[in-house]
């Protein structure tokens, strides 16, 4: 009986952690997210969102996309540097941001006190193109600090996105995450 309960708990934790294979989530490049908030009666999705995005807003208000891997499907790791590239106008929303979190899902302490970039504070060229360097070492330009040698996550938040854009989030171009050569 006891072993069955422990096994049941382990199965529950495994199912909750297995976000990327959930039918409720879509994947676009490195980004995984859901357009299903509020959650209704889907217990698994509700538990996943409660655990990994506590007090998330409904999808008419905000969409949260997670990246745990780069474009080569390798897990993001502070041992490497990454370039997040895109165009500031490709995300059609009132406000959007990219934030780095440690594997514990909290902000990563760093000397610059820099945790994110958003559509009003990142440097772009005249055409709106941007490149954010994610690195544990100080960089020029848009530098998003990562942990020294641990896995980390990126979250793309899209607030008050244009309806047509949000409805096609699974296919519209989103910022790409590429590992930089050492």
């Amino acid at each position: 009986m006891f072993i069955a309960v422990i096994t049941g708990l382990a199965v529950g934790v495994y199912r909750m952690a297995n976000v990327e294979t959930s039918k409720s989530f879509f994947t676009n490049g490195s980004w995984t997210g859901s357009q299903s908030l509020p959650l209704g009666k889907d217990n698994l999705l509700t538990a996943q969102i409660s655990t990994f995005a506590l007090f998330a807003l409904p999808s008419e208000e905000a969409i949260y996309l997670f990246a745990r891997k780069d474009e080569q499907h390798e897990k993001l790791n502070g041992e490497n540097d990454y370039a997040i590239t895109g165009n500031i106008n490709q995300i059609k929303a009132n406000y959007w941001s990219i934030t780095a979190y440690g594997k514990d899902l909290y902000l990563i302490p760093n000397e610059a006190n820099r945790f994110s970039f958003n559509n009003s504070n990142m440097q772009t060229d005249s055409a709106g193109n941007f490149s954010i360097t994610v690195s544990s070492k100080k960089q020029s330009g848009n530098w998003l600090p990562s942990p020294t040698d641990a896995r980390f996550n990126l979250v793309l938040r899209i607030y008050k996105g244009e309806r047509n854009f949000v409805e096609h989030l699974n296919e519209v171009p989103l910022p790409s995450i590429k590992r930089l050569a050492k």
Binding site: M1, I3, A4, V5, T7, G8, L9, V11, G12, V13, R15, M16, N43, L44, T46, A47, S50, T51, L54, F55
Partner: peptide
């Protein structure tokens, strides 16, 4: 069969009550 039923019920209840548990912790 009993073992499998306990596993199924436990994981189902665990997932169902995670949100309330997280609220209580918060």
């Amino acid at each position: 069969l009993f073992f499998a039923a306990i596993i199924f019920a436990t994981q189902y209840l665990f997932i169902a009550f995670v949100p309330e548990l997280i609220f209580a912790i918060a």
